[in-house]
Each structure stands twice: as structure tokens, then as C-alpha cells.
Design a protein around this nucleic acid. Structure first.
Lengths: 330, 330
DNA sequence: GCTGAAATTGAATAATAATTCAGTTATATT
DNA sequence: AATATAACTGAATTATTATTCAATTTCAGC
């Protein structure tokens, strides 16, 4: 905003307000303008650097835990967000999303293809990614629609809002996530419209995903899978899921009928993406996260301290660990 | 305030609010406290220096004009307050009072006797003198009550509020400002209670006064003098007044019947006080101010730029001027 | 001088922040 | 442990600040 307020006036208002602690209403009286303008003068003072507000560095990440995770699990990158003690649920997601966004923004390329999955934590983070910062991506929906409704945390909604924020192009996978059988899936994949998206998966430079646990599955909540289905999957060794792809404790995709019935980026495809960011706050899904890391499904984990600790409490990969020493601290 | 908020919590709140621009309500949610507490946490952050707000120096005084006044009129000290262009009336008084107070505070000693007169401009300034700053003065009312009513700008009210602010002791002159004749005045001065105050005048280390012009006299407005009285005074050469003492263009007390009828600090007494501060915003009373300066009645003048310019437009004292050169700038 | 676009303005309003108040909870002193 | 005192807390309230909106003003280009 190119305002023509005189420096004199801006400085006078700034001195009265910030130095002398006079209210805007009183400043308005002394400067002989409306209170509204005082508010604007003060904004100008901050913009022009006449008033500077500096805040001591606050480290919002727990780098000790991050280092441990990197060392013990051999994960490329971990972002462990400090939260209010006892934070959980919405607050936890919001905090991890808020702080995480500042760092995830730097991990996502300026151009190219970004695959995006849904989830409440992913949404919280996406909502807080910076406004139009020159980025211009092709965003692709990484999994079909869970059900016919569209929730605010569904990939289709997140993708839409991200291109609105950044410009670029959003490609939606106009299919259900799960179809009745392989034949139907292949038929869907035959559609050019859908195949075009499918193709983009291989070109993705980054992906933003959540990780599902077998407990409290969103698929069950939304009536796509039954509790029995989950039990069956567990019998096949499933401990977690990304984009509807169930994997075992080593992060290998479970060989179940569901494997043929899901329309989403495959785990093999995911492994090829240079930057896969998983946002998983909370301790509940630690097992699934551990498995995903073992399977090299993700490159970056965004979580909070309870999530990090729960993860570290689990056995690391058999023989995994990026550093040969595999030392753990304290 | 010795708050026990953890630094961690204070810093987290400060980062969210000041760095990320999150509202207090949202910070409250993330930090898991009430919005009220966020407000307190942020106050603590500022107090502890975790958040620092710096404002580029703004020079609220016009030192060019001050220097000119000192040079041309040979006045010890001038405080010329910059104001909003076109400021007048209440706003002018408030601005001069606000800025002036910051400097006048430094001119008033920490202890000893302070004589105080009334007036709207004096009130504006007094109201803005710093709260209990270790000062402990005996404050004396420099002139009796103008009429039976007590206005918020009367010395009795200002003195009361100053001792409330600073501690110390307030001595009120429980007499009218003007009495019918010299005999009555002498009788009043005979009272121990009044004499005690009268005595203090000679011990005063500082005085805070206004200067009255012959026009728009507060005494006329309050029905103590008539327009005719003012005309009579003018015939005797009166151009201004301090504490009910009328003086001519050289600042010498006019020899009129009123001189015997006023109960207030005398001009001779005033001259002896090491620090007499006159607060006179606006151009209207320039003649009176010039005369007061010529008569060495005041040591410091507090005014605004229009007041300073009006003063400079007048002839300086015959042969006055502290510097032998008496040079003027520009 | 005229014209249109952009910037600026303050009144009204909406949004946000500070304070009051009536309990709680912690801390120090017996 | 019992008590007194100071500190702390959040709901409700009050106070303050930011924004919206409908003019009005300024300025660049004729």
C-alpha cells in the first residue's frame, strides 16, 4: 500500500501510541484525524519501519527429538512441533499444522506436480500454508473420493483451496476411492480424464499425505469399510494406510482384495516421489508411522512431541537406521 | 508484577501473536488458556523484554524556535511543542500538556516546595505528569480561590491531584483570590492558616503557572472582574496577569487598587523562585508572555509553534537578550 | 479545465483485546 | 496441618482497534 501519509504525522502518531501509550482515540484527537486513520497511520509506521517489533527467537521445534527420529529410524527429515502441554485433538492438529506449515512450505517446490491426500491434520496444515508466494503447481488428488459427500478435509477440497491460494492447476480424480472390484477399477482407469491424473502421479515432485491407523479409520467412519473389513485387513498384517493403500509393519503393501479395488497413488509410486510429507500429530498412529518409515514410504514426518516419543518407543526398523552407528541420545 | 508464567508459554504466545499474527483468541486455543490470560502473557512478554517495540526517535519539540526565543528574549528555557497543523483550543492545550509534561517533570525538583496556579493548560500538563516517581513535594496554592465554585482547572484541584499522585503535602490558600480591600486582605493574612502558606511562597523551589491576557480573562468569565475593571487595568498599562497580579509591558506590577486586594504570590516573590514554568499554548497571549519574560517573571515557557512564532513577531525587551549579540536566525 | 482511476477519508460497525470480578490455587508463616 | 496472603484464573464485560462502506479528494492524462 503506497500511502502518502507524511512521515511527520506517522511519527507523531507512532510516538504517542507506542512510546507514550496513548489510546488511538486520544491520538486521533491530538493528531486531528479520525481513529480509523490513526489505525492506518500506525500500520504505515510499522510498514515503514518507524516502529519495529522484535520477538526473541522461539524455537517451535524439538530438534532433540527430530535428531533421534532421524538417527533411530533413518528418516530423512522430521519436524517435531512443540505444543502446549496436554494438547490433543483439534488443538494438537492446529498447532502442528500452524507451525508445520512454515517449514513444509519450504519443502514443496515452486513448480511441478504436487500430489495431495486428505485428512484433518493435512487440512490444518494446508490452510496455513502461505498465501500467493509465487508458487505455481499442478496439484493432483492422490486418491478418489471417500464417499459422495465432500468434507472440508477431503483432498478435493484441499486441492481446490490451494490452487485458489497459489494459482496453478488442480486435477481431480473423479472416481470413488474404492470400487467393487479390479475390473471396475481398470475400467475407470481407462477413462482418459482419470488416466491423465494417474499419469501425473509419476511426475509428482512432492506429496502431502496423512497416515491412517487401523483404529478409528476414517473409512469406517464414513461407511466405506466395515469393522469386519478392518479385521480382515489386520489378519493380512495391515498396520496402517496411506491413500487407501494398506501396509504391513514393514511398510509393504498388503496383498488383499482391497489392493485391487482402490484408486489412488500406489505405495511404489509414493516411494519414487522425492518429497513425501506425512502429517501425523498425536501418539495413536505411531505404529503405522513406524511401518511407513520402514517401508520408505515417506521422506518427511511432521508430528508433535507426543507423536515423536511414541514413535521412538517402538522398535526401529530391522537393520534400518541411516547412520551406521544408530546411536540414540540420553 | 512478579508473574510466574513459564518463559516457554510466554514465548510461544509471543511468537504466535507477534510473529505469526494470530489473534489472541486463536493463541488462547493453541496455548490452551483463556484469551484473558493470553493478554496477560503478552504483557509479560513485553515486560520481560521477550517482545521489544522500538520507535524511531520523534522530536516533539521545535528546537529552532526554542533557540530563537532564548536568544531573542533572553529567556532561560523554552519548550516549543510541535502540534498537529491547525491544532487549537482543547487539542492544542492537550498536546502541549502531554508533550510538555515529559519535560516539565524533569524541571520540578524531587522535594521542596512547589507553588501551583490554575488554568486549563496547566491542568492538561499536570494531568500528564508521571505517576509516583519518588517525588515528594510540598505543594502550595499560589492564589486564592477565584470564586466559590471549584473547577477542575483550579489550583486547589490540581494541587490535590498532584499530591495524590506523588504523595507529599498540599497546602491550600483558604481565601478568595480577590477581597474587597487592603484591610480585608491584611486581616486574612493575619490568620495563621493563611500566613503559613504565604510563608511557603518564599521557599518555593519551583512554580507552575499560566499567564492571563487582558482579553478573554478567566476572572471576567467567572464574574470576579467586570469588563470595566479590565478597561481600568488596561488604562494603568496592564497587558497580562499571573496569579491575579497584573503587569505592564515590561512585566512590572501595575499600581492599581487590585494590587492590594489580591491574595496570591507576588510578582517579586515569583522572580525569586529558581524555576517558574509558564504554560501558555496558542498565539493569543503572546503580548502578555513577552511582558512576563521582559519582567523576568518566568524562567521557562512552554508553548506551541504558533505561540512561539507570535512571540517572536513581537519586539524583544528593550536592551534585553541574554546573548550580547542578540542574533536571530535565518 | 475536464475526466476517470486510484487513493484517501471518517462514520459506523465488526472484530479484537484489556479489565473486572468472583472465585481458585499456590505459597509462606505459623 | 492450619491459616493468611498473594497470585492466578477464566467468564463476562468493557474498552479499544481494525475494517467496511459510501463518499470525497487527488492526480495523471488529456
Amino acid at each position: 500500500m503506497n500511502s502518502r501519509y507524511t512521515d511527520q504525522q506517522v511519527r507523531f502518531a507512532a510516538k504517542l501510541y507506542y512510546v507514550d501509550g496513548v489510546s488511538q482515540t486520544e491520538v486521533a484527537r491530538l493528531v486531528q484525524v479520525s481513529q480509523a486513520k490513526v489505525s492506518r497511520l500506525l500500520a504505515a509506521a510499522r510498514e515503514r519501519g518507524i516502529v519495529r517489533i522484535t520477538v526473541d527467537a522461539y524455537e517451535p521445534r524439538d530438534d532433540e527429538l527430530e535428531k533421534e527420529i532421524r538417527d533411530v529410524f533413518g528418516l530423512g527429515n522430521a519436524i517435531v512441533v512443540k505444543t502446549a502441554p496436554g494438547a490433543s485433538g483439534d488443538v494438537l492438529r492446529a498447532t502442528v499444522g500452524h507451525i508445520g506449515a512454515q517449514y513444509v512450505a519450504a519443502l514443496i517446490p515452486d513448480s511441478g506436480v504436487l500430489a495431495i491426500a486428505g485428512g484433518r491434520a493435512v487440512r490444518e496444515l494446508c490452510e496455513r500454508l502461505p498465501e500467493r508466494d509465487g508458487r505455481r503447481l499442478t496439484i493432483v488428488q492422490a486418491m478418489g473420493g471417500i464417499d459422495s459427500g465432500v468434507n472440508s478435509e477431503d483432498a478435493i477440497e484441499l486441492g481446490r483451496s490451494l490452487v485458489q491460494r497459489w494459482g496453478g492447476f488442480f486435477m481431480t480424480l473423479s472416481t470413488p476411492a474404492f470400487v467393487p472390484n479390479k475390473r471396475t477399477r481398470d475400467s475407470f482407469l481407462g477413462f482418459k480424464q482419470i488416466h491423465a491424473v494417474w499419469d501425473r502421479f509419476t511426475q509428482a515432485g512432492a506429496a502431502l499425505v496423512g497416515i491412517g491407523a487401523m483404529e478409528a479409520s476414517a473409512f469406517v467412519a464414513r461407511g466405506v469399510l466395515t469393522t469386519q473389513d478392518i479385521e480382515d485387513l489386520k489378519k493380512h498384517g495391515a498396520v496402517g494406510e496411506i491413500c487407501g493403500r494398506f501396509f504391513d509393519k514393514n511398510g509393504s503393501e498388503c496383498d488383499t482384495p482391497w489392493r485391487e479395488r482402490v484408486i489412488s497413488i500406489g505405495l511404489a509410486g509414493l516411494r519414487q516421489i522425492p518429497q513425501v510429507v506425512a502429517i501425523v500429530p498425536g501418539a495413536e498412529r505411531a505404529h503405522a508411522v513406524a511401518a511407513a518409515i520402514r517401508g520408505r514410504l515417506i521422506k518427511t514426518l511432521v508430528t508433535d512431541e507426543t507423536g515423536a516419543r511414541a514413535l521412538l518407543a517402538l522398535k526401529p526398523a530391522r537393520g534400518a537406521g541411516r547412520t551406521s552407528s544408530g546411536k540414540t541420545k540420553k
